[in-house]
C-alpha cells in the first residue's frame, strides 16, 4: 500500500483493501471512478474504526488524497454533482459487467474476465455511497461475485466452467 502514498493498511481495514487497489489501477484512465472508490473506502473505514491511532492516521492520509483529487478534478460535473457521479460509476460498473458477461457467454474464460466480474461487484459496493442500491444492482453484484469465484475455481482446478 506504500506505493499509493498511504501508510500501511491497518488490519482492521482489510475489507477495503481491494477497492483501494482498484482505485490505484483506475487513477489514470478513470479518475472519477477512482475518486468514488476512495470515498467509499473512507466512509467504510470511518464506520469500522476511526479511533485507534493507526486507523486515524490512515484515514487522515486518505482524506488528504480525496481533497487533493477533488481539487484536481474540480471542474468535472461527476465530482461536483454526486447524482452525475453516481451515473458515471454505475455506467462503468455495467461496462465491466457486460464485458465479462460477453466473454462468459462466448466461452472465453480468462483472468481478465474474472477480474472484470469482480471489479464490477466492487463498483456496485461503491454505489452505496450515493444511497440504497436498486434491486437490479443487488442482483448484478451477487451474480458477478459468484461468477468471479466460480470461474476462478474452475480455472484453478483445470475444469471448464459450465
Amino acid at each position: 500500500m506504500a506505493a499509493s502514498g498511504l501508510p500501511p493498511l491497518p488490519p482492521q481495514f482489510k475489507a477495503v483493501q481491494h477497492i483501494l487497489r482498484s482505485a490505484q489501477e483506475l487513477d489514470k484512465r478513470e479518475p472519477v471512478v477512482a475518486y468514488y472508490c476512495r470515498l467509499y473506502a473512507m466512509q467504510t473505514g470511518m464506520k469500522i474504526d476511526s479511533k485507534t491511532p493507526e486507523c486515524r492516521k490512515f484515514l487522515c492520509k486518505l482524506m488528504d488524497q480525496l481533497e487533493a483529487m477533488k481539487k484536481q478534478l474540480g471542474d468535472n460535473e461527476a465530482i461536483t454533482q454526486e447524482i452525475v457521479g453516481c451515473a458515471h460509476v454505475e455506467n462503468y460498473a455495467l461496462k465491466m459487467f457486460l464485458y465479462a458477461d460477453n466473454e462468459d457467454r462466448a466461452g472465453r474464460f480468462h483472468k481478465n474476465m474474472i477480474k472484470s466480474f469482480y471489479t464490477a461487484s466492487l463498483l456496485i459496493d461503491v454505489l452505496t455511497v450515493f444511497g440504497e442500491l436498486t434491486d437490479e444492482n443487488v442482483q448484478h453484484r451477487k451474480y458477478a461475485r459468484w461468477k468471479a469465484a466460480y470461474i476462478h475455481n474452475c480455472l484453478k482446478n483445470g475444469e471448464t466452467p459450465q
Partner: peptide, 27 residues
C-alpha cells in the same frame, strides 16, 4: 488519562467527519 485520550480521539473523529461533509458539500 483514559477520558482525555477518548476526548482527543473523539475530536479528531469529528474533524474527519467535518472534512468528509465538506468534501461532499454537505455543510
Amino acid at each position: 488519562t483514559g477520558s482525555v485520550g477518548t476526548s482527543v480521539a473523539s475530536t479528531e473523529q469529528d474533524e474527519l467527519s467535518q472534512r468528509l461533509a465538506r468534501l461532499r458539500d454537505q455543510v
